[in-house]
Design a binder for these strands. Structure first.
Length: 477
RNA sequence: CGGCGCGUGGCUCAGCUUGGUAGAGCGCCACGUUCGGGACGUGGAGGUCGCAAGUUCAAAUCUUGUCGCGCCGACCA
């Protein structure tokens, strides 16, 4: 029964993972395509997920001293150009504004692809003394990157995100903040989204344009592809020098600030879909789910059924986010609909149940049916939601571990990526040439140099020279 | 930006080869019967066939161009 495919509209993920993803995004009504190429309309059920992500992360940010601000969405060309690596990294994908009304602008402006330059321009005038530091600001906004190929949530030309930008008196403070925020992301992904991550550092080749070091949390999707799910950058004082952000320190000397930036995007919604979803549709981890329990009345036109459903909703609203599906569809329809939309729990209540003083609870993740008396249901629901949250993380971790391989020779490395899909742990000499070779041979990239290192062998998996680091490799979104 | 595929009611598509009155299923609306895993009956609304030029007595159909979408590569959150 559990493997029977009930929702014909959703393509099976084994058949065509990309189509499965698109089907879910559409059938769960998360987005709609628009007339604007590469940009999506986020629908209420999709946006509600983002709002939950936002409010939880915002709370966690603020607990570490972050304050929210808002910067302009336009960046004058001269500002964007100040930091050489940065402009080289972003120039190919920025959108330009050339006219104001009918008049050509004296200087064209791009629509922000990221706001380092704006924050720098701002900090330049806002920071004078060590007493002004640290600056720990964040903004929730959208950014624009003129992507060639787009996919809902994973890559669109405009996307929603948060970008934190901080300025510190010392390199050590900046490094601590960079790591601290990476940990905020890692904890958030695991606790709230039930997505296990690998924490580590990006290689020189993969790091952010203009950064001294980029840290990342990498997650593994159901199809074995990797998704960079959050990043945190340490800029050292490179930007400060380019933008001339100096302060007078305690020792009465002029110093450059040390900066960081860090962000997550609506891409996280793509990660939720691809880590937890199944062939029946979306599966939302309870903590992030806008609706945690959907009550489905059976024979709702019979007297007392809907009343009971509403009564249960009112009672259970104290322990969960609840809705009643009182549309005039048949119960079978509503079951499928609830599954496609990923509601963690479904509660079925009909005349027979009311008579017996019970109801049926169904877990979305395992589709296990549980009978509960109407007296105990208010205690049962939060308990089940907690169990699901925990088990979803465990399942995702088990899947990731089962799809994490090791390779000590290049033949072995190639064999794994030819036959399987997932992360491969392998030793690396530290040179860019090997990364390029691996990419050319297998379209595999280094995902990160994990903080938790292991020694698998003494030599680089690619060139055979002495190895420096163990690296996670994978095919990425 | 390269390769492949696709644009016809809200959705999925047929029709195009061989030019001649725009179709189906689903969805939608109304009424009735139903209701524990996508129910059924009856009636109804809804399309300048992506756009533009061309060929023709006549174009959804042929030609050219163009725009958009999807997937795969390169680039990227």
């Amino acid at each position: 029964m559990a493997d029977k495919k009930m929702v014909e509209e959703i393509t099976s993920m084994d058949e065509d993972f990309a189509q499965w993803y698109t089907d879910i995004v559409r059938k769960a009504e998360l987005i709609e395509y628009t007339s604007v190429k590469g940009c999506m309309a986020i629908k209420p059920d999709g946006y509600a997920i983002w709002e939950n992500i936002q409010s939880e992360l915002d709370k966690r940010f603020k607990a570490t001293g972050v304050r929210n601000v808002y910067m302009p969405m336009f960046i004058p060309e001269s500002l964007l150009e100040k930091e050489k690596d940065h402009v080289e990294g972003f120039a190919p994908e920025v959108a330009w504004v050339t006219h104001g009304g009918l008049e050509p602008l004296q200087e064209r402006m791009c629509v922000r692809p990221t706001s380092e330059t704006l924050f720098c321009d701002f900090y330049k005038n806002d920071v004078h003394s060590y007493r002004d530091l640290p600056k720990v600001y964040n903004q929730w906004c959208s950014v624009v990157r003129w992507e060639k190929e787009t996919r809902p949530f994973l890559r669109s030309r405009e996307f929603l995100w948060q970008e934190g930008h901080t300025a510190h008196a010392t390199a050590e403070d900046a490094e601590n903040r960079t790591v601290q925020m990476l940990n905020v992301y890692a904890d958030f992904l695991e606790d709230f989204l039930a997505i296990p991550v690998i924490k580590g550092q990006k290689t020189e080749k993969e790091k952010f344009a203009g950064a001294e070091a980029t840290y990342t949390v990498e997650a593994l999707m159901h199809d074995g592809k990797a998704l960079q799910s959050g990043t945190s950058h340490n800029f050292g004082n490179g930007f400060a020098k380019a933008f001339d952000i100096q302060f007078t320190d305690k020792d009465n000397t002029l110093k450059y600030v040390y900066q960081t930036s860090w962000g997550v995007t609506t891409r996280l919604i793509g990660a939720i879909i691809m880590v937890h979803g199944d062939n029946e549709g979306l599966v939302l981890p309870p903590r992030v789910a806008p609706v945690q329990l959907c009550i489905i009345p059976i024979q709702q036109k019979k007297e007392g059924v809907l009343d009971k459903a509403y009564e249960l909703r009112d009672k259970l609203s104290a322990v969960a986010r609840v809705k009643v599906d009182d549309t005039d569809k048949t119960p079978g329809w509503k079951f499928s609909e609830a599954e496609m939309r990923g509601y963690p729990l479904r509660l079925e209540i009909g005349p027979k149940d009311i008579e017996a003083g019970k109801c049926v609870l169904v877990r979305r993740d395992t589709r296990e049916k549980i009978e509960a008396s109407l007296d105990e249901v208010a205690a049962k629901v939060p308990e089940l939601l907690e169990t699901m949250q925990k088990e979803m993380l465990e399942r995702a971790r088990a899947h990731r571990d089962a799809h994490t391989y090791t390779a000590t020779s290049y033949d072995e490395f190639k064999k794994v990526f030819t036959e399987k899909s997932g992360f491969v742990k392998a030793m690396w000499c530290g040179c860019k040439e090997c990364e390029e070779q691996i990419k050319a041979d297998l379209s595999v990239t280094s995902r990160c140099i994990p903080f938790e290192q292991e020694t698998l062998s003494d030599v680089c998996v690619c060139c055979g020279k002495p190895a420096q680091k163990m690296v996670y490799w994978g095919r990425a979104y």
